[in-house]
Design a protein around this nucleic acid. Structure first.
Lengths: 193, 193
DNA sequence: CAGGTTCTGTACCGGTCTATCCAAAATCTG
DNA sequence: CAGATTTTGGATAGACCGGTACAGAACCTG
């Protein structure tokens, strides 16, 4: 064995994630990453081997914490429709609290387009898991009678996903709470049984 | 008088816009811009004075052509709801045709956040004009009985705007036509009288 | 405490970035 | 055709980029 790292790797990833979230991939220089994490260049390259890989770790970290946040939100409500409501309103609240930073996955998709296969795969995986979770919740809502059965759960899930994306875009554009909540309410209206 | 420019300025802006659209601001180097426009460095800097200014011109150009496209789409339908439908389906069709590039304004907002006042102002202005157009169309739909009067036109406009943004995000993420049309249909259902 | 191993800070590498400079070419007016 | 003015291409400046090399400090094992 030998000298141990003086920092916590997860903490560093978290700090890097926030830097990327604020300024994008290209917009975040390795020096920015040093400043954000408090680490030296060598430590970063020794641990993560490249900016690109650290970015992927950041995406993964974002994805995981996002799942946790969503699950926590879902558990605050009983029936299906209220769960979706909690999700939408929770998204609004988070955006307001975190300073309109939007969604890292969205920002990444917008920045990269389809020019990076690895990044694309991660974004897509996150989308898929999000959709699966939504579809599951919607199915329970259809079962308990709070969500319309006039459309397939998968389609409604796509709709909710798009709505959340739209909300985050509004937020990034500087929208206020009332407008965002109104949009959320209208989207919920489209789901109601 | 003296030697005239050998190129068309608008054409150059259009080419630059497409380059920025594909690769983002930071991702587009001045060399890329030279290649895209077919101009030399000097011509570009002589005409537009900086990359940043050319970018703003590109945003403006995008905004103007966007208005034209939208107006053309609106004129293909009679009543209010069908107009909104034409808009949503036209957006889907455009995304499919243009190779899932998303919306330049959205991409820009995602890349810049609120770090650039001039860019932000342009994005916001575009959003405002888009919302105003939507609200107007929705009001006519409320008048002709095809769109619900249960919500203020401004709120419904925000919702449609968010939906279009959501559709563009789906597209950028690689979504196919059926999913996108399903989402559009659900959104329209929320508007119907 | 000695030896092996890993981490950390500094300096630096080639490459690329935006932007500028300048001379040569091109055009219009008179 | 001459002179004034502008555009144009190529070279280059100066800064910053991601990434690396290396020496010495820090740590664990035995």
């Amino acid at each position: 064995m030998a000298r141990p790292k003086e920092f916590d790797e997860q903490q560093a990833v978290d700090a890097a994630m926030n830097a990327f979230w604020d300024r994008g991939y290209e917009g975040t220089s390795t020096q920015d990453l040093c400043a954000a994490t408090g680490l030296g260049r060598s430590s970063i390259y020794n641990t993560f081997s490249s900016k690109h890989e650290l970015f992927q770790r950041s995406l993964e970290h974002y994805s995981v914490t996002g799942v946790h946040t969503r699950n926590a939100l879902l558990d605050t409500a009983e029936d299906g429709l209220d769960r979706i409501r909690a999700l939408l309103e929770g998204t609004v609240a988070e955006e307001l609290k975190s300073g309109h930073r939007g969604c890292l996955m969205v920002n990444t998709a917008a920045e990269f387009g389809d020019r990076d296969a690895a990044v694309n795969a991660r974004v897509r995986a996150d989308t898929e898991s999000h959709l699966a979770m939504l579809a599951g919740t919607i199915r329970t809502g259809q079962a308990d009678g709070t969500i319309t059965t006039g459309r397939a759960a998968a389609e409604l899930a796509q709709f909710v996903h798009a709505s959340i994306g739209g909300l985050r875009l509004m937020s990034r554009g500087g929208a206020g709470e009332p407008e965002m909540l109104a949009v959320a309410e209208i989207a919920l209206g489209a789901l109601a049984a």
